Simulated scan of single mutants.
Amino acid sequence: MKYRTVFDIIGPIMVGPSSSHTAGAARIGRIARSIFGKQPEWVELSLYGSFAETYKGHATDVALIAGVLDFDTNDPRLPESPKYAKEAGIEVVIKTEGAVLEHPNTAKIRLQSGSEELEVVGISIGGGKVEITELNGFDLQLSGTSPAILIVNHDRYGVVAGVTSLLNQERVNIGNMKVSRKEKGKMALMVIETDEQIPMSLIKQIRGLEGVDQVLSMDDY
């Protein structure tokens, strides 16, 4: 395994107590917030495995709420994030689940604002590093270390080519790309990680493509 900085080994600058159960949880929440693109009105946090067993002692639920509020791992407001969520008018529901999943440090976050909803599943893999493994039922593998766009589209000829053509015209370099679908000919998901943040003007062009249903963007963390 390659490390880019010393913080990949010792973990991020953070409000403790745990890099995996606190800092990692905050990053999962913050990535979910970034993908959702706005402050939600309602949040449901479902905790699995070790997260479910030890969340009170490690403040995992508090960290997830902090992330949803867009607080960084070292934000001094993190320990009091439930108070800030209440002040912001965000209803938070916390659930512990008994299901055994592939990774013990797993959280599912459901965000809602008006008619808009988003469901994200993330895992904390240690040292504050995380992966987003599911988005609205689609499987994916997203670390949050690079800017990314997530495109929900109809599974048909020409949609992927249309997106990559626009990126090429704007000289945006693709670092990683994955296309998945639940069923042939139905809805699909494109996950494209890039070397630089994609401008809103380009995102609007992608949203205008035939066959594209939704475009979500994510900053790097």
Rank of each mutant, 00 (worst) to 15 (best):
V163K: 05
T164E: 14
T164Y: 06
T164L: 03
S165R: 15
S165M: 14
S165H: 00
L166H: 05
L167H: 12
N168E: 07
N168P: 14
N168M: 04
N168K: 11
Q169D: 13
Q169L: 15
Q169W: 05
E170N: 03
R171F: 03
R171Y: 01
N173Q: 06
N173I: 15
N173M: 04
I174D: 01
I174C: 06
G175Q: 05
N176F: 09
N176C: 13
N176A: 13
K178V: 08
K178R: 00
V179L: 07
V179T: 05
V179F: 09
S180R: 13
S180D: 10
S180Q: 02
R181K: 06
K182H: 05
K182G: 10
K182A: 09
E183R: 06
E183I: 03
E183C: 06
K184G: 01
K184C: 08
K184Q: 04
K184R: 15
G185I: 14
G185H: 09
G185E: 15
G185F: 00
G185C: 07
G185A: 14
M187A: 01
A188T: 08
A188Q: 00
L189N: 08
M190H: 02
M190S: 05
M190K: 01
V191P: 11
V191R: 01
V191T: 09
I192G: 07
I192V: 07
E193F: 09
E193L: 13
E193K: 10
E193S: 13
T194Y: 08
T194G: 13
T194F: 01
T194P: 05
D195W: 00
D195F: 07
D195G: 02
E196K: 15
E196C: 00
E196Q: 05
E196S: 15
E196A: 14
Q197V: 04
I198M: 00
I198D: 03
I198F: 04
I198V: 12
I198L: 08
P199Y: 04
P199R: 15
M200T: 13
S201L: 14
S201R: 11
L202I: 10
L202V: 11
L202N: 03
L202A: 01
L202D: 04
L202P: 00
I203H: 09
I203N: 12
I203L: 03
I203Y: 02
I203M: 03
K204Q: 03
K204R: 12
Q205K: 15
Q205T: 06
I206E: 13
R207L: 10
R207F: 06
R207M: 12
R207K: 14
R207Q: 09
G208R: 03
L209W: 05
L209M: 04
E210L: 00
E210T: 13
V212H: 13
V212Q: 00
V212E: 07
D213A: 07
D213V: 12
Q214P: 03
V215W: 11
V215A: 07
